[in-house]
Every structure is written in C-alpha cells, then in structure tokens.
Simulated scan of single mutants.
Amino acid sequence: MVETHESCDSRDCKKPPGDPMSSAAPAHAEDPTAARLRALLVRAPTAVAFVSGQRFEVVSEEFNHLFGFGDDSDLSGQGTRVVHTTDLAHTALLERTAAAFAAGRPLDEEIEYVKRDGHRFWGRLQATPVHWDAPAGEALWIVEDVTAARAQRLQPTWTAKHDSVTELANRREFERRLAEHVGSRRGEPVSVLWLDVDKFAEVIKDMGAEVGDHFLYGLGQMLIGKVRASDLVARLEEDHFAILLPDCDQHYAQIIAEKVRSAVAGYRLRWGLHRTRVKASLGVVQLQPSLTTVDAVLGGAALACTEAKAAGGDSVRIFVSAGGYEELAG
C-alpha cells in the first residue's frame, strides 16, 4: 500500500491533550506506527484507552467525550478510579480483570460508570492485555455506552421474546412468528432453516461454558449478517438455531443455507488465548399444505438437519414431503 502525505486542517492535526506520543519533530519524521495510532485515537468513533498500573496512559478522543472530558481536560495520566462509582466497584473490577487475564480470557461485562459531571451510565467494557505473555502489564480498554440497550433488555416484553445468551429471538418468539405463516393463504413462499453446530459439545468440554456462550453470541451476530433484515434468526436451544425466511422459496432457501454453512465453516472464535473453529449442519424446509402445524414445520427442518449430520456434517439437506432428501448441489 502506498502511503500519501497531505495537508490537514487544524482540527485533524491537533495534538490530543496529554498525548504522550506527541513530538516536536516534523510530521514527516514521525514514526509511521505512532502516526497511525494517533490518527486512530483522534478520528475513530470508538472509545479506546490504553491502561497501565491503574492509570490511563493514552485515550482516544471518543473515550474522553464518553466520560465528559474534552479539549480543556484529558483522562490521559489520570487514575482509572475516576470513572468508577465507588472505591469498592473499582477494586472489584481490578480483581475480576486480573482473574480473567490470568485465565487467558478477556474481560467483557457491563459496568456502571460515572462521567466527569457526576452523571452515571452503563458501559460495556471489553478489556484485553496488549501482550498476553504479560497479562499484568498494559491493557486495552474499549467502552461502549449500553444504557439504552440495557434498559430495553430489562423490559419484561424483551426478556419474554429473546434468548439471554445470544440476544436473538427465543424459541417461543420464533414459533409465534412462524405460526403467522403456517396455513396462510397469502400465497407467498416461506422457508425455514434449522442449524445445528457440529460437535459443539467438544467446544464446551475443551473451553468451558463461558467461552461457549461468547462463541454462541458471536455466531448469532454473524448469522444476522448473512440474511435479510426481514428474516428472523433465533436460538432455539443449546447450539440449535433457526432462521425464518418470508417470501423465500426452497430454491433460494437452499442458496441461503449454503451461504450460511460456508460462513460458519469460515468463522473463527477468538476469545483471549482461546481459538477454535466449527462447522454446521443445516436442514431446509419450505412451508407446504402437508405441514399443517408449527411443530410439523420445525420437525421437517430438524429431520433434514439430522440427515445432514448423519452424512458427516458440514452439509445441507432439504426436506421433501414424500419422505426423501436432496443434498444441495455443490
């Protein structure tokens, strides 16, 4: 990649207050890595901080703004205690962070923070060591304001419809939405995919339930990105997912199923020092007159998925009402 150097306005070239990477040397003589990091910390819309010894060493502009700091003040050089509500909360966080890093895991949790003006908010903290071989050294913090999302998740209507681990629709909500199409006379084709992660029990055995939950969450978010906004992705149970595809016939459902299968095969779980990869089996069914209930539709999709697993996994099978199965070509 060819790097170009252009003039910039005073806002983009402004030195962040307290930035320890600043230098009186001309811009063209600055270390390229430091220049890239500086640009990232100033321009990226992400609240990022480097923390060492319970002190903020370097923070992004967005991180300052998130906590109510700005041009006349800066979190760089201040203790991490300043953004926590109490000494007890701060100490407890340090203990949980140390335990997670020692176990080779990042810290990912929601914490109540306090802004400079005293206003409190809930933030999702994702913390990881800069060097895993020195977990007690410098760490990277990424904080996201989740106050609104957290309030929504605490609503009874939300918890009744969503899975707590993946935040996808739960089985009850999926069946309710599917029921709107079963027996419908609107005439539009509707299909359902049933996805079962191959050998997921081995992931849990090797890595533990906590890592497994993070994997399921990441997998669910990846699945959402592979379908349309009008489709519904749900976690039915354990490692079983389902996708409702309105206005989608069997032919296009096969194409989507293959795309999803390929995406799962290429998906990598990276959680701290933990790494793994899995594959998935999928069953496809298009709603048809012979499937008169929600249970019948899901049963057909699950049966096709079972056939895919019996064939060795990492494959797609199509439910046919006559009792046979077709393997997706290719």
Results as ranks from 00 to 15, higher is better:
131 H>W: 07
126 Q>Y: 12
162 H>E: 04
114 V>W: 00
149 A>S: 13
72 D>H: 15
155 Q>E: 14
166 T>D: 08
121 F>L: 08
164 S>A: 14
192 V>H: 00
125 L>D: 11
150 R>H: 04
205 K>I: 02
96 R>G: 02
75 L>V: 05
158 W>D: 07
71 D>Q: 09
183 G>Y: 10
195 L>E: 01
188 E>F: 09
188 E>V: 15
198 D>L: 11
208 G>D: 09
142 I>L: 09
140 L>S: 06
85 T>H: 03
147 T>G: 00
211 V>F: 03
137 G>K: 03
141 W>N: 03
98 A>L: 08
209 A>D: 12
135 P>F: 11
188 E>R: 15
83 V>C: 01
75 L>R: 00
210 E>Q: 14
194 W>N: 04
151 A>D: 11
179 A>I: 07
141 W>T: 03
115 K>W: 01
156 P>I: 09
97 T>D: 01
110 E>Q: 12
122 W>T: 10
177 R>S: 12
117 D>R: 04
138 E>W: 03
207 M>N: 10
77 G>E: 08
142 I>A: 03
141 W>K: 01
133 D>S: 14
205 K>M: 10
146 V>I: 12
118 G>W: 01
152 Q>Y: 10
143 V>T: 05
76 S>I: 04
177 R>L: 15
184 S>C: 08
187 G>S: 12
84 H>T: 07
203 V>M: 06
121 F>S: 01
152 Q>P: 03
142 I>C: 02
74 D>C: 15
181 H>P: 10
75 L>S: 00
143 V>Q: 00
177 R>E: 14
74 D>H: 14
152 Q>K: 13
99 A>H: 13
131 H>L: 13
209 A>E: 13
73 S>V: 04
149 A>H: 02
127 A>I: 07
79 G>L: 05
